[in-house]
Nucleic acid binder design. Structure first.
Lengths: 211, 211
DNA sequence: AGCGTAGGCGTAGGGCGTACGCTGTCAAGT
DNA sequence: ACTTGACAGCGTACGCCCTACGCCTACGCT
């Protein structure tokens, strides 16, 4: 009986993402999204609970493009790395939304499915009980931190230049590290850091004596 | 000759932190800080470049309480863990500022000194060249991610409850992990995840064959 | 005592989110 | 074919936010 709806939530999500990609996260506002769609500001409130809801929508919209199926059979390290890389690539395609991801992580069905898949891979690798949970959380923490590091202060960016310019007397190690860091690509850094974690997991799976 | 200044930047930082701790990060505004000090809004601009500057000030104010001296001699794993724990405790005392830390990390002298100390510990442990830089970045990434995980979705929080309530058919591993996770304290989770990373570093220091 | 500097602040303009209530439209029921 | 009423869309308005600009005045120095 009522008048039919003219928008959909995914449509709103897409418009919001367009705004964020084009004008930056700080430009994300109800007004901007409404203008992007060609609708009045208040019309959005029929589809969305408010600003927070739109932010969650953007995160899920970015994530929804990601493959969450189990990676092909092979060594478990490669399978874990493949899953991790999918997140890095998915999020890296929309750097402006990175600050939103930690907050809305829980509300994204895609990320829940990803976690489910990761737990399956870890289970196949022989991780059980506590160790499996810790492994998931450890990998998740690394991903979140590393992605933020990469986009908020990459090794080959202005921050590193500033570090290389520190007074050598007071910061001898930092100065040296700064010059060295410039030669490391973001991807290499990410991958080698992940390898550290995988090494750690490996020692546990093979029979670490603690943890 | 001129009229003397009546405020100091640290004073502004302290007032801003008071506001954030009491009313939350979203309540941080020029007006709120000015009112906290007992000064008009615009008076703040004599001491601060604007909103961004205040946020950086808050981060550094929180960090400045942290000890950045080298930890006592001992096994390098313990020394690294001690440094890491200092950050967790320092930041954990003011959870509301956590979202700010990744962005303003570079501008904090205290964090630069902390990094310098960490590089020194890693050097003492035998890490040289690339490996030392990668180790620092890996540990930093883990800290950032783990702290956000802890405060934005702890293992024993509502997020985990929601996970445990997922349909078991579709999310068998998550359901199991959710119930198990509730028994793991935030500190244990943090520590065991860090141990994974330290294990990985260990295998490298002892003579890993790759990386 | 007088002066020049610069600190403190008032005003105002352009953003923002969103509560509230009106209007117009469409589909169902007669 | 016409009435009807539920609800999508929107206009208005309020109360926040940041901050550019310029005035006034308290102060330390001469």
């Amino acid at each position: 009986m009522p008048r039919p709806r003219s928008l959909t939530r995914p449509q709103v999500a897409a418009a919001a993402l367009t705004v964020v990609d084009r004008d930056g996260l700080s430009a994300l506002s109800m007004r901007a999204v409404a203008k992007e769609i060609g609708v009045s500001t208040m019309a959005l409130y029929r589809y969305v609970d408010g600003r927070d809801d739109i932010e969650g929508l953007v995160v899920e919209h970015v994530m929804s493009g990601m493959d969450t199926s189990p990676p092909p059979d092979g060594p478990w390290r490669d399978r874990v790395a493949a899953l991790v890389e999918r997140i890095r690539l998915t999020v890296g395609a929309h750097p402006e939304v990175i600050p939103l991801t930690p907050v809305y992580r829980h509300r994204s069905p895609t990320l829940l499915r990803w976690s489910e898949t990761m737990l399956g891979v870890l289970a196949d690798a022989g991780f059980g009980g506590d160790a499996r949970v810790i492994a998931l959380r450890g990998v998740t923490a690394y991903i979140i931190g590393a992605i933020q590091l990469e986009h908020l202060g990459p090794l080959s960016g202005p921050g590193t230049d500033a570090i290389a310019a520190l007074p050598q007397e007071e910061f001898p190690h930092m100065s040296a590290a700064g010059s060295m860091a410039r030669a490391i690509s973001a991807h290499e850094e990410f991958r080698r850091g992940l390898d550290l974690l995988l090494n750690g997991l490996d020692s546990r799976a093979v029979g670490g004596d603690e943890l």
